[in-house]
């Protein structure tokens, strides 16, 4: 088993590590979905998780902000440390964790509320604004960061569900950054979008890495190559290889990685 998983210490600056996972196992009922994953995810970096469907990349991503808690049959073992603190420790409230580790989903899922209320939802529940003016400020700042401010600034009261797919996804990204997270998890954020909207979102991801640690799950190798600095390749629940994106795509060490990026498995 251990042979399947590489030790990833390549050029990692300990001070720069945001997430560090050690011997993580995830089970869905009897199904061992994630096996012995060890990985260090860096701050202010875009990390891509790639691999064939069902390889566990989304499952692992969801265990980084304990979204797996919402699935009753799911069980996570091993240590996942955020800034050195175990996120699965009993005294940790997942609610607080998720405020620090935001998430963007595969399908844009704006709430059936106005654009303004979609963004303001997170700050409101976490009590980030003391008054309306502050909230307005947060909403504007978030929409700007989501690169959608110019498109919606005149219709903040319109329902978020009325936007186009690409706009909806950028709205969801803006919604996620509104709570001032430190990490942004993105689960195939472009899979439901057309190429133009995809380009917009990818551009946005590139800007976001200045402030956040971004983890993106994608099944598109081109996308991983375009947006990420680090890439992790998952296969059948194992983390096969984790390295600089350029290394993974030009000079993979593992034959499985090579087979995948050359299109022989997938």
């Amino acid at each position: 088993m251990m042979k399947d998983n590489v030790e990833n210490k390549v050029g990692v600056d300990a001070m720069n590590v945001k997430f560090s996972a050690r011997d993580v196992q995830v089970y869905y009922g009897d199904n061992h979905a994630i096996k012995d994953v060890n990985v260090d995810i860096l701050d202010k970096t875009v990390t891509a998780f790639i691999g064939p469907s069902g390889c566990g990349k989304s499952t692992f991503l969801r265990s980084l902000n304990r979204m797996n808690d919402t699935i009753p049959i799911c069980r996570v073992e091993g240590d996942i440390l955020l800034d050195g603190e175990d996120i699965n420790a009993p005294q940790v409230d997942p609610v607080q964790l998720r405020a620090k580790v935001g998430m963007v989903f595969q399908k844009p899922n704006p709430f059936p509320k106005s654009i303004y209320d979609n963004i303001a939802y997170g700050p409101r529940i976490h009590g980030l604004a003391r008054n309306k003016a502050e909230l307005d400020e947060i909403v504007e700042k978030s929409l700007r960061r989501g690169a959608i401010w110019d498109e919606v600034k005149d219709r903040l009261d319109a329902p978020g569900t009325g936007l186009s797919g690409g706009q909806q996804q950028r709205l969801c990204i803006a919604r996620a950054v509104a709570t001032e997270p430190e990490v942004l998890l993105m689960d195939e954020p472009c899979s439901a979008l057309d190429p133009i909207a995809t380009a917009q979102v990818e551009e946005l991801i590139d800007e976001l890495k200045a402030s956040y640690s971004v983890v993106i799950v994608t099944h598109s190798m081109q996308q991983a190559a375009r947006v990420s600095q680090k890439t992790a390749f998952f296969h059948l629940g194992n983390l096969v290889e984790y390295d600089d994106t350029t290394t993974i795509f030009t000079n993979p060490r593992d034959t499985r990685t090579e087979s995948y990026i050359t299109g022989r498995i997938g």
Partner: peptide, 18 residues
């Protein structure tokens, strides 16, 4: 109500009742 809607809210750190 689609599960995605709930996930979106949990992902922002909302409690279940919120």
């Amino acid at each position: 109500v689609p599960q995605a809607m709930r996930d979106g809210s949990y992902g922002l750190g909302a409690t279940q009742s919120e």
